[in-house]
Design a protein around this nucleic acid. Structure first.
Lengths: 213, 213
DNA sequence: CGCATGATATGATGACTATCATATAAACAT
DNA sequence: ATGTTTATATGATAGTCATCATATCATGCG
């Protein structure tokens, strides 16, 4: 046996970690396999001993990225109530610090629009990691039904991610700040609206629709 | 003088139009200059007679893309109230059709995360076009202060764009639909919460019941 | 101690990219 | 007709990319 299996595991982990950072910072297309490998202290050739393709690396990196983000934003301190933890999450998510450091932040605002155009393998990895992340957020939300809380967590996340994304894309710092600030108010309004969650389970999206008319 | 100035203007417009579609469908990095040109019925070389760089084309394409989206989603029919127009916008934006046809849809969910990493030129073009788009949406919103309505429009847009983006990225069709559905409820909750903040507006949207449901 | 195994390195391939230099041809003024 | 102007076409350049074939070399087992 060459090297130890543990050694390979650690090397692979190092590659995934670097990739998870690089992707969030420069996008799926903006990161090259040779770039990630050299960042991990290796050369490009060995890559395919660890992953079958770049897409396989991307798919693996989501779990790492969401996990890191949960660690940073979603882990409540000891002895804080869920309400306090939720409040902390909203503030941290829609903060200037999160806006200015995408590399260690949430995956959604950085990569979702690229994922939407990616391969099935990439989207499957994204979906699984996103589900777990949303489920952790759902623990902080009010509401009885478990599945409903998961969906609520996803849309709350979508709202905040959308705002963070805009605040990053926009050219004017004052506008960027204004978006973040307003998005906080909006997030709280959304959370408040969850309390009186009367069932609208009969609601449906019509099969055929005409959005562009 | 070769050709007419009008001819050049039309050619340029054709390039921008094709680019605006292609970018929304395949992303800023997924579209090549030769690809756009051949789509417009030209060869790649002539491109630089119309634009100084690919970034210049990108920056120009935003106005076209947002304009198209506004024309289709945001232009109220004759004789509809602003409340009805807003309701229509929310439904159309968070529809399966909009999810499944990014090429003619809103720019924000398709491109914002890439714009956040783009050059100053690109971000400036994006910001200007976004501002105009949000301003048109703001006309449909309640609230007295004009600047506040603009910011409110931006965050409402961010919420819906984030949800649409997720619904596109996710692998599971059922989950995708659930996100769209829930995001509608959330959008209405957000709109309802706007009335309580600052209101001298006579136009009201019912807080609980949604028309046409 | 040497050998087999497999992790990593070196080097190459073919495709694609943005951009530019130069050539062609279309339109109009004369 | 003819010449000038300039939009568009042809062709080239230099770089980058994902992927693969092959070489090296570290490791633990015999």
């Amino acid at each position: 046996m060459p090297y130890t299996a543990e050694h390979k595991r650690q090397t692979r982990q190092r590659i995934v970690r670097e990739a998870a950072h690089a992707f969030r910072e420069r996008g799926l297309d903006g990161v090259s396999v040779p770039g990630v490998m050299s960042q991990a202290g290796l050369t490009h050739g060995g890559f395919y001993a660890h992953f079958a393709s770049k897409d396989a690396l991307i798919a693996s990196s989501f779990s790492e990225g969401f996990g890191e983000s949960a660690e940073r934003l979603l882990t409540p301190d000891e002895g804080t109530s869920t309400a306090e933890a939720l409040d902390h999450f909203v503030r941290a998510y829609l903060s200037r610090a999160h806006r200015d450091e995408p590399a260690t932040g949430c995956v959604v605002p950085s990569l979702t629009s690229e994922v939407a155009r990616a391969s099935g393998e990439v989207r499957a990895g994204f979906t699984a990691a996103l589900r777990e992340y949303a489920h952790r957020l759902a623990q902080l939300l009010p509401g009885a039904d478990d599945a409903e809380r998961d969906t609520a967590a996803l849309t709350l996340l979508a709202e905040m991610a959308g705002a963070l994304q805009l605040s990053r894309a926009v050219d004017d710092p004052a506008l960027s700040d204004a978006i973040l600030l307003r998005a906080r108010r909006q997030a709280w309004a959304v959370i408040a609206s969850m309390q009186n969650t009367s069932d609208t389970s009969t609601e449906r999206i019509p099969a055929k629709e005409h959005p562009h008319e």
